[in-house]
Nucleic acid binder design. Structure first.
Lengths: 156, 156
DNA sequence: ACTTGACGATAAGGTGCATTACATTCACTG
DNA sequence: CAGTGAATGTAATGCACCTTATCGTCAAGT
């Protein structure tokens, strides 16, 4: 048997745990402003580029067009976004942030920065760089292995 | 502003991406044997220790007792597990693997090992150790920050 | 025994996601 | 310009998970 098998397995669990805890920590704070994982993710992406189509957003977020459509339904009902028709293509909806959600953005970014400061507190710059490097390499490997993400089957 | 903020943010995305891709890769293979994320996780834990109570399992898997109960319902219907009454405490159900799911275990472990070999292929032992260390530290920090996992609010 | 509080599980209602199937609309090709 | 195929979004259905509320059971104190 090869060495390091234990380390590999531990890393699998470690990644899952850490990601889970990170998401929990942020979600708890977002929930206090009435946002869920699915909804803050949409708002965060729209803050980078407003007025994207649903298909583009779904691809960005790596969820199915259907799932995104439902999330947009809820966000529209709660007044966080609005759908506007695309002037040149009647199949498309363009999704725009409303003032309500624009007011939330600063608090979202602050929260994110605060949390990051807290849990990377005792990491050296070198360690951070190394961690980032390892993750990037691992991601590249995984992407190379061509894992299909939802909705990509239809896209020939 | 402090340095390294970019690295921190990248690490956040990196962790999320990598975990997502890892889960996808394994799930795709498990789905071929009729298991979903939720169900293979239950089976994997029971393979370590059979006959756990639902509450203990829920805590292990960090999901709510309700969510676990539903998953057990489905696993029982598909014949993968069975509930047996606890002889000493009539509130409890003990969950046991059936022969059907015992037959699946070897394939599950093989798949896991194959995948790990594939994506850690170009990592040195030293890098693996370092990655494991960073993740462990990060997890410790996060746990320290006392993030409540589902269902823990009720348990005073 | 009797109450009180904790524990194990279920019921009900809602969010988030996937897959399959479908209607529109567009864009390309003959 | 018709005709086909691809792209965009929706409808319907099912799985997975959460929160809140409730019921039955146990354990411990009085």
């Amino acid at each position: 048997m090869r060495e390091g098998a234990d380390a590999r397995i531990e890393i699998g669990y470690g990644l899952a745990d850490v990601t889970h805890l990170l998401r929990m920590a942020f979600d708890q704070r977002m929930r206090k402003m009435g946002l869920t994982t699915a909804t803050w993710r949409v708002i965060a992406w729209l803050s980078r580029q407003d007025g994207q189509t649903q298909a583009a957003l779904a691809q960005r977020l790596e969820i199915s067009r259907v799932a995104l459509g439902e999330t947009i339904d809820r966000l529209e009902k709660s007044g966080h976004v609005e759908r506007r028709a695309d002037p040149t293509d009647r199949r498309k909806w363009r999704v725009h942030l409303t003032l309500l959600s624009r007011d939330l953005l600063p608090r979202m970014f602050e929260t994110s920065a605060e949390l990051q400061d807290a849990y990377f507190q005792d990491f050296s710059e070198a360690e951070l760089k190394q961690l980032q490097l390892s993750l990037t390499r691992l991601r590249a490997r995984l992407v190379e292995m061509k894992i299909e993400t939802p909705d990509e089957e239809s896209g020939k």
